[in-house]
Write a protein that binds this DNA or RNA. Structure first.
Length: 213
DNA sequence: TAGGCCATCTGGTCCT
DNA sequence: AGGACCAGATGGCCTA
């Protein structure tokens, strides 16, 4: 499973460093060093990749193998923390996006991919609504006032839109055929893998997808 | 038990 | 040199 793909980067062994980084138990201490790691076939570097590989972290000044190991661990630990923070920030942004998106009950959390797809469709539908002009001027006005993307209730029957106003994200309503055809993104936009959890009963509005397709 | 989703770890690459 | 970004791998949790 593993090969010595990293050997060309860490060829320089027996180096010395002045400030050892704090170490923590990880797989290295369990006998699996970085040099023992292998790459999957898809990770194996091309010749072009090998040329660029030299841009990795330099440890040329490190002569002592033990110190080198500690330095690597320290860097890895820091990189892991940064990566965690980065992913947490990404998840926070997704949560913010979920709060903006209409239609779904509070206890049914959209998955990441669903959030992105619903957002895409939401934006698309709002754009189409604007494009349609006067017949949906109420919606357009709200959006132009900067309200549309902040008030999910805009899409509910109790909002400024009349209860019989068809809406592609209004799960409780069934859009008229003309409106559906106008506000439906291309079917290719709806990936079949996005099942809307209908079989899991996660969403009361499980038929939203059908409204789009 | 299989499949989906997720968090985390990891190494490679790019950018400042 | 160090951080950001990315994608693959892995294991845990949950549901049908």
């Amino acid at each position: 499973m593993f090969s010595k793909a990293d050997s060309f980067e860490y060829e320089e062994q027996g180096m010395i460093l002045e400030s050892p980084a704090p170490s923590s138990p990880d797989r290295d201490s369990l006998g699996q060093s970085e040099e023992d790691m292998e790459m999957s076939p898809t990770q194996k570097p091309s010749s072009a990749d090998c040329k660029r590989r030299s841009r990795g972290r330099s440890t040329k000044t490190i002569k002592n193998p033990e110190v080198l190991q500690k330095v690597k661990k320290g860097r890895r630990q820091k990189a892991n923390n940064r990566e965690k923070n980065r992913m947490h920030a990404l998840n926070s942004a997704l949560d913010t996006l979920r709060q903006i998106l209409p239609c779904f009950p509070d206890d049914a959390k959209l998955t990441k991919i669903e959030t992105l797809r619903v957002a895409h469709n939401y934006i698309w539908a709002l754009t189409e609504t604007l494009r349609l002009g006067d017949s949906f001027s109420g919606v357009a006005d709200c959006i132009f006032m900067g309200k549309g993307f902040q008030d999910p209730s805009l899409m509910t029957p109790s909002s400024g839109i009349s209860s019989d106003t068809p809406s592609p994200w209004n799960c409780s309503s069934s859009p008229s055929s003309s409106y559906t055809s106008a506000l439906s993104p291309a079917s290719s936009d709806i990936d079949s893998s996005c099942s809307w959890r209908s079989k899991h009963q996660r969403y009361a509005g499980a038929q939203l997808q059908n409204d789009f397709s």
